[in-house]
């Protein structure tokens, strides 16, 4: 058995370094940014990362099987437009809208998976193609315009449907907790999905097999794992979670805004990759992904409260990502593994 004393400082640094950095950041902003410490601000951080976080959890699943999903951002915006179209133009209720989005997400994931598994298209290329296709597809029904009540449709008539109240509830309702109207629905959803994905990947046998596939696909296959099915499942999870993100975005905005969600892909991929560094995992993992998303959220919230301009945000995210990747690949021995 391992002895407690045998752990060197470096091991500890790799394991807890990123969490310490996060704690340090929180302390720093609490001291120097007025109003940072407090439940409202904390909830705001969570809210700001909920949608990216959910997408990032999806992309984590594809990373686990050694894949990649570039289409998540466009799946989310497609879900945004689709839900708006279903309610505003087709005048359906919230349930139909949500269902349509989830089915769309699952379908896109299925097609991605089939392209990769059956057609042998490399994952990056297949999902890149899908990303393009969806960005275009979501604009065709409305000829490139955003969707809102009262808009003029291509046929000439006016769209009379509205976003239903119960749909908007998903994005805007806040539950009471200690304070009135504190926790928004997206945050709850983010936490629930986070726990579910974590349980699935870390504790279930399916997750274990997915990690095995990501580590040595041939060996996993020869141990009896149905590789194709697990890979397709990973892309379907990714697609469905991306569509959930899109639904939340639509419910928050209340209109089918064609220009929203541009940053979703990069932000969520960054969160998943930052997650590699958490607890020295050096591999995709759900807990790390959630922490990665929060890390970016805390940093941006704090900097914003200290009046740093909005255009520095991407720079900061990029810097955090690079530091996290150095953590993962240069410092931890697992990152360097591969020799004998």
């Amino acid at each position: 058995m391992t002895k407690g004393t045998s752990k060197s400082f470096k091991d500890l640094a790799i394991r807890y370094g990123f969490l310490c950095l996060l704690a340090g950041l929180v302390v720093f902003f609490s001291l120097f940014a007025d109003g940072f410490a407090g439940p409202r601000s904390a909830v705001f951080v969570f809210q700001s990362v909920a949608i990216t976080g959910i997408l990032a959890l999806g992309v984590t699943c594809t990373l686990v099987v050694d894949g990649f999903d570039l289409s998540i951002g466009s799946v989310a915006t497609t879900a945004l437009m689709l839900s708006a179209y279903v309610m505003v133009v087709l005048e359906q209720n919230a349930f139909v809208a949500v269902l349509a989005c989830l089915i769309m997400g699952a379908l896109v994931g299925l097609v991605n998976g089939l392209l990769i598994v059956k057609m042998r298209v490399p994952d990056l290329l297949a999902t890149l193609g899908m990303m393009f296709l969806l960005i275009g597809l979501q604009r065709i029904p409305t000829e490139g315009r955003s969707i809102a009540t009262g808009m003029r449709l291509p046929g000439g008539e006016v769209a009379e449907g509205t976003f239903s109240a119960s749909f908007l509830w998903i994005g805007r309702h806040r539950f009471d907790m200690v304070l009135e109207d504190l926790i928004p629905v997206p945050v709850i959803l983010f936490l629930i999905i986070g726990v579910c994905v974590w349980v699935f990947l870390e504790l279930s046998r399916h997750g274990r097999l997915m990690y095995a596939i990501g580590s040595n696909e041939r060996a996993a296959g020869l141990a009896g794992a149905n590789i194709n099915r697990y890979k397709i499942t990973a892309y379907m999870i990714s697609g469905v979670l991306a569509s959930v993100g899109g639904i939340l975005l639509a419910a928050r905005l209340g209109r089918g805004d064609i220009a929203s969600g541009n940053n979703l892909l990069l932000d969520s991929v960054a969160a998943a990759l930052i997650g590699f560094a958490v607890l020295g995992a050096a591999k995709p993992n759900a807990f790390g992904t959630a922490i990665g998303a929060l890390f970016v959220g805390v940093l941006l919230q704090g900097l914003t409260m200290m009046n740093s301009p909005y255009y520095t945000q991407d720079f900061v995210k990029g810097a955090v990502l690079i530091v996290a990747l150095v953590f993962t690949f240069a410092l931890s021995s697992r990152g360097r593994k591969g020799g004998h």
């Binding site: 046998r205 097999l209 990690y211 095995a212 990501g214 060996a219």
Partner: peptide, 23 residues
């Protein structure tokens, strides 16, 4: 190339084909 899962420990490598029995 056909057997070892490099990211797993001894236990994980051993139980891989029969996870159903271990869950």
């Amino acid at each position: 190339s056909n057997g070892v899962i490099p990211d797993f420990d001894i236990t994980g490598n051993m139980t891989l084909p029969f996870l159903q029995e271990h869950s």
